[in-house]
Amino acid sequence: MASVNEVRLEARLVDEAARLLGEHGPAGLSLRKVAAAAGVSTMPVYTLFGDKEGLLAAMHREGFRRLGAALAAVPPTADPLADLAALGIAYRQAALSSPHLYGLMFGRAVPQFQPSAADREAADATYQPLVDGVARCQQAGVFGAGDPRRVALHLWAVAHGMVNLELNGQLPELGAAAEELYVEALGYAGLPFVATM
């Protein structure tokens, strides 16, 4: 089991690697450059990650670990629709706090990188809270019947699209803060599923 210091060092190295990837692209990412950016020798970097592929896998895992933790921190309340919105807010906050990891998690920041089956499974698990949130809205009669996975996909597509626009500086100037536009988009995304009276 890794010590607290090893866990902290790995998180620091992952963040440095993500920064280098964001600033210089895949060609600017190497274990030696990550070690230099973090101010450590190359030995712990090679010990932790082995090679560049291992580093990318660790970055992918850490990004989804952070996303999963952000979503898990949203406490369920008696209002499932408010809880669903809170999950959307947590998703955006996780993306904004680790923007370069987000690009690796959901983009093609490193086209040749392919996460392992186990890492893909762990990533897919972060989608389940959204599906569960939709199912709770359906059970409460807030949303109409239907496959909660399909509704969740629609909601995630809107959230993901808005986050990508914001991270890439492509949100149109509409006289409102990015967070306000995001929350508004989430509201519009949910309207087709609201149960009719």
Rank of each mutant, 00 (worst) to 15 (best):
M162E: 14
N5A: 13
A78L: 04
S30P: 05
A157K: 07
A57G: 05
E180G: 11
A86E: 11
C137A: 10
F143C: 03
E180L: 07
S3Q: 11
E179A: 13
Q114D: 05
G68M: 09
D51K: 13
E173H: 10
R66A: 12
A35Y: 00
E62K: 13
L13H: 10
A90C: 11
A35V: 04
P99D: 08
G161K: 08
P26K: 10
G146V: 03
E16L: 07
L55N: 09
P99Y: 00
L153H: 12
W156L: 13
A157V: 05
H24K: 03
T47S: 04
G50E: 01
G169W: 13
F64W: 06
L56E: 02
A145I: 11
P148G: 07
T196S: 07
L174F: 09
G107M: 09
L48K: 15
V163D: 02
A157G: 12
H154D: 14
Y46M: 13
V163Q: 07
G146L: 00
A27K: 15
A58K: 06
V183D: 11
A27Q: 15
R150D: 10
A69P: 01
A18G: 02
A17Y: 01
F113I: 03
A86Q: 13
G107E: 05
A86F: 06
Q139F: 05
N164G: 14
P172T: 01
E53A: 15
A85L: 01
R92G: 03
R136P: 00
A85N: 03
N164P: 00
D119H: 10
D132H: 09
G103D: 02
L167Y: 00
A73E: 02
L55Y: 01
S97N: 14
R32A: 11
A57L: 04
R92K: 15
A85F: 14
Y188N: 11
H60L: 04
A140P: 06
Y102F: 15
Y46K: 10
A109C: 11
D132A: 14
V45E: 04
L9D: 12
L29E: 05
Y46Q: 15
F64G: 14
G161S: 11
G161M: 03
H24L: 15
D119W: 09
L181W: 01
C137N: 03
G54N: 00
E23Y: 07
A159G: 07
